[in-house]
């Protein structure tokens, strides 16, 4: 496996992995790169799908909750625009802002499905998970994972750690009964 993944990176990854990614003996699978190569393409594709699904969700909400519909339209347009931007290339600042926004959306999703938003048609209860929502979140998580790799090495580590802290934070809130 080590040989195969190392070989794969040698072929497709022109950037050197940041120091410590691979053990000196090359044996740590955890530190080996996934043979997914075009992170920018993955991020662009996934965030575009998420954006289109948000626009579709807006159509569902337009009849009964205009606030939600507007929110979904704005998110959908920003995400599809971000997808186009990512295909052209982006700056670390934009990537960082995009990551923060996506992590915020995922946290908002967890909040709406566990505690419940205090506005809209589900003001009195959390929403149940549904196929459309899950698909959007999966796309957003894929975008987050791919976008982290677009950052320079030092920022990549910081951004990854920040996402990890947010994730652990959500679990701590669940374990202490705040969420759920």
């Amino acid at each position: 496996m080590t040989d195969r993944t190392t070989a794969a990176r040698a072929v497709v990854d022109p950037h050197p992995a940041h120091p410590g990614d691979v053990d000196e003996d090359g044996s740590s699978a955890l530190r080996s790169p996934v043979p997914t190569v075009t992170a920018g393409l993955v991020a662009a594709g996934a965030v575009t799908v998420a954006g289109v699904l948000h626009l579709l969700a807006a159509l569902e909400h337009v009849q009964h909750q205009m606030t939600f519909a507007v929110f979904f339209i704005v998110v959908g347009l920003v995400q599809t625009g971000a997808g186009a931007g990512l295909r052209r290339g982006s700056t670390p600042l934009r990537v960082g802002l995009g990551l923060a926004a996506l992590v915020g959306l995922v946290v908002l999703y967890v909040y709406s499905r566990t505690i419940g938003l205090q506005i809209g048609p589900h003001a009195d209860r959390p929403e149940d998970p549904d196929f459309l929502g899950i698909t959007v979140v999966v796309c957003e998580l894929a975008t987050i994972a791919a976008m982290i790799t677009l950052l320079p090495d030092r920022l990549r580590s910081v951004a990854g750690n920040a996402v990890l802290v947010v994730g652990i934070g959500v679990w701590v809130l669940w374990a202490t009964g705040v969420v759920g």
Binding site: R9, V12, D13, P14, H15, A17, D21, A29, L30, R31, S32, P33, V34, P35, T36, V37, T38, A39, G40, L41, V42, R87, G89, A145, A146, I148, T149, L150, G160
Partner: peptide
Amino acid sequence: MSTRAVSRR
């Protein structure tokens, strides 16, 4: 377009 890999980390 970046071609960097997503690491397991």
